[in-house]
Write a protein that binds this DNA or RNA. Structure first.
Length: 737
DNA sequence: TACCAGACTATTTTT
DNA sequence: TAGTCTGGTA
């Protein structure tokens, strides 16, 4: 037994109960900032201290970053053997299991993982080859339908049995082909990782027993955001020893759009009637005012089980509300505020976080930060691994590792151009289908070569040589030499260098950065050194994973990315109807509730100070929009808010001074009496959130209004297939109802 | 086959 | 607004 001393005295009784829970199913309902991570790390440390070997513990986290941090914290408590704990995201866990034992259900060890864009390109191709117009059958829609099917563990056959509408029957056909193409390409998509892992455990008794025997304790964090396959997986893995600990907070469930289902938290207690339930409701993070503010936003949700967090912290500063003219003014307001705080010496740049609803909002903020020289770290947005040049090179590496990878082959074979256009491609596809071989095999088949013209033939030979030479380097295990070889011999580098533009130089820099990444991978003693492992790591990283820890900069990220983090000072920007809550959520109660929870998550990231800002006028898609301020602001009790100095007076809410104006008066969801006039010269014909009638589409809800010469452009959300429509009021003749 | 210009259109969150 | 797609031309 190791010598582990935990400071259990410092825990509150609930935390202590959770840490010391002996065994059996345990559900920890952990409010924001309630010391959840501490409880989990202590619990794991304690299990190890009591003799449970680290390799028999499985801890599932939401992001790789969370896993890494948790591992470090446990290492501080129990020492280096914390390395042996199985810790990671569901997807990483499944990939690991499938690589080891997937052969039992016919999965090749060397499979690659297809990401979103690769899935999409495959779907697009399938839609086209079936002769559908990809406007009538949208690739995105098909993909998310397939994804949903997989989350419910429906195979193509089962899905087809249930399909009733035209759309569903179409998807059923595509789904079937899609799976076949994935299989031929020796690839799995994100959902497959989960789905196949569950299938593996269900179908192979020996594999199931192996893992059930192995994992003495299973812990799942962020349980409110699991989907059905993940729920199944956790249950299966903990099936024998029943030591399953789940930790979640239903108020922080923000991934329903991705198939997560809070209802599974309830189901846990039904499936495990003997489960112990511990609620952590003391918040150690935020001030009383921040907590009250956040609570006053979520409490509007119906059907939540009401838990009100409490804190012994001071009430702290008031929540600051800032209204500005445009989004540029808004960014400037934040810049000024940050500079002010820095000057007074109260904070450093690293203390601030800027949170926004959509990535598109980051641009304006970043521009302001660049011009005013505020050091900052942008999380997300255009991901490094989503950049074209990076995807191209990763594509090459994937073909080297797995020549059957069809999507990567398509991506790379004519990049840089080698004279292999659609015609050559179609020929190869036909040849491959006819001889029942992969595309790569077709392209490299001597018989096929005879069908080609001189130029494409030369191109293919060069390509093949690049790949084959690289394949010979596989044995060494190092990734960097292969990458360098491929960059060079493919002609990719030469082409970029020849461009001599700033953009090309940027791309070259990014490629250099990629070399740094592989070099680091190659020298990491904790990694299995092979290309397949590298490709998997790359496929499963998220934005937040690559956020640099150090560096004293203001963090910029979406609300979703901020989950699980905390900052001394938080700015929540763009609090406008149609932005946050997002326009897609207006008029949909379920989605509005999720927006509310998202707001709750954002607000509770703040420890000391919280700013909520919005602009009266904002350019969206190149057009001026006048969105009223967010209903979430109107939810806040006026005694805990204050107006930021320097914000415009005439239309702003003049908080404390005009008490009666801030009644949470709602109809269509926000305080009507307060709405500032959009501009002095223009009156929108409808309120946002108002129900209107259209003679063809029926009843819909106004998403936004924008001025248009002597007219107005009105965006309306209609139910069902009609969706969101932009229309000119004088023509559409929308009627108020 | 490659490339360009202009049209078009879709706008969330991400493992 | 910006990214994608299409169609025409070299």
């Amino acid at each position: 037994m190791s010598t582990i001393s935990l400071d259990l005295e410092s825990l509150n009784p609930q935390q202590r109960e959770a840490v010391e829970h002996p065994g059996g199913p345990l559900m920890i309902v952990a409010g924001a900032g309630s010391g959840k991570t501490r409880v989990i790390t202590y619990r794991i440390a304690r299990l190890i201290g009591e003799g449970c070997p680290p390799y028999r513990i499985l801890a599932v986290t939401f992001t790789n970053k969370a896993a890494k941090e948790m591992r470090e914290r446990i290492e501080n408590l129990v020492g280096p053997n914390a390395k042996d704990i199985w810790m990671g995201t569901f997807h990483a866990l499944c990939a690991r299991i499938l690589r080891m034992d997937g052969t039992a259900i016919g999965i090749d060890r060397n499979f690659v993982v297809y990401d979103d864009s690769e899935q999409l390109s495959l779907i697009k191709d399938l839609i086209k080859s079936r002769g559908f117009d990809d406007k009538a059958i949208q690739p995105r829609g098909v993909l998310s339908e397939i994804s949903r099917a997989k989350e419910q563990m429906l195979t193509p056959e089962k899905y087809a049995d249930r399909a009733s509408s035209f759309f569903e029957r179409t998807v059923a056909g595509i789904y079937k082909d899609y799976q076949r193409r994935l299989q031929n390409a020796n690839s799995l998509d994100f959902d497959d990782l989960l789905f196949k892992a569950v299938r593996l455990l269900e179908e192979s008794e020996s594999v199931r027993e192996k893992y059930q025997e192995k994992f003495l304790h299973v812990l799942v964090d962020e349980y409110q955001d699991v989907n059905f396959t993940q729920y199944r997986l956790a249950d299966l893995l903990a099936g024998k020893n029943k030591n399953l600990t789940v930790v979640g907070d239903d108020d922080q469930s923000i991934y329903a759009w991705r198939g997560a289902d809070v209802g599974l938290m309830m189901r846990f207690t039904l499936d495990h009637p003997k489960a112990t339930l511990v609620t952590l409701d003391q918040n150690y993070r935020s001030t009383q005012n921040i907590l009250s503010g956040a609570y006053s936003v979520v409490k509007h949700n119906r059907g939540r089980n009401d838990k009100k967090l409490w804190t012994s912290n001071d009430s702290g500063e008031l929540i600051q509300i800032g209204e500005t003219g445009t989004e540029h003014d808004e960014a400037r307001l934040v810049v000024d505020r940050i500079n002010h705080e820095i000057r007074t010496g109260r904070h450093t740049y690293g203390d601030f976080a800027i949170l926004y609803r959509t990535n598109a909002q980051s641009r304006v903020i970043e521009e302001a930060f660049l011009t005013h020289q505020i050091p900052h770290i942008l999380v997300g947005g255009q991901r490094f691994y989503d950049r074209k040049e990076i995807k191209d090179m990763i594509g090459y590496l994937r073909v080297v590792w797995n020549p059957a990878d069809e999507v990567s082959l398509r991506r790379t074979i004519n990049t840089p151009t080698r004279g292999i256009g659609p015609t050559a491609f179609q020929k190869a596809q036909a040849f491959a289908d006819h001889h029942n071989i992969t595309l790569y095999e077709a392209f490299t088949n001597p018989q096929f070569e005879q069908e080609l013209q001189k130029k494409p033939l030369q191109g293919i030979r060069n390509y093949r040589k690049t790949i084959e030479d690289a394949r010979e380097m596989l044995e060494t295990g190092a990734v960097t030499p292969i990458l360098k070889h491929v960059m060079q011999q493919s002609g990719y580098l030469d082409e970029l260098r020849a461009e001599r533009t700033e953009d090309a130089q940027n791309r070259l820099d990014n490629l250099q950065e990629l070399i740094n990444v592989t070099a680091q991978f190659d020298s990491d003693p904790n990694q299995d050194h092979n290309l397949g492992q590298f490709l998997e790591t790359v496929a499963l990283v998220s934005d937040i994973d690559s956020m640099k820890e150090d560096g004293d900069g203001v963090k910029l990220m979406t609300l979703h990315s901020s989950k699980g983090l905390e900052f001394p000072v938080v700015f929540l920007m763009g609090l406008e109807e149609g932005i946050f809550p997002h326009s897609r959520a207006l008029g949909n109660d379920t989605e509005l509730e999720e927006e509310r929870r998202l707001c709750y998550v954002g607000m509770t990231r703040a420890r000391k100070a919280l700013y909520l800002t919005y602009a009266r006028r904002r350019s969206q898609y190149g057009q001026a929009n006048f969105n009223p301020r967010s209903r979430f602001i109107d939810d806040l009790p006026r005694e805990i808010i204050d107006q930021m100095p320097g914000t415009t007076m005439e239309t702003s809410m003049s908080v404390v001074s005009s008490a009666p104006r801030l009644e949470p008066l709602r109809s269509g969801g926000y305080a009507i009496t307060e709405q500032p006039k959009a501009t002095p010269s223009w009156d929108p014909p409808f309120r946002v959130g108002q129900k209107v009638n259209h003679r063809k589409f029926g009843i819909g809800i106004v998403v936004s209004c924008a001025p248009l010469k002597n007219d107005a452009e009105v965006t309306v959300a209609f139910p069902g297939a009609v969706g969101i429509k932009k229309m000119v009021q004088s023509l559409a003749k929308l009627e108020e109802i």
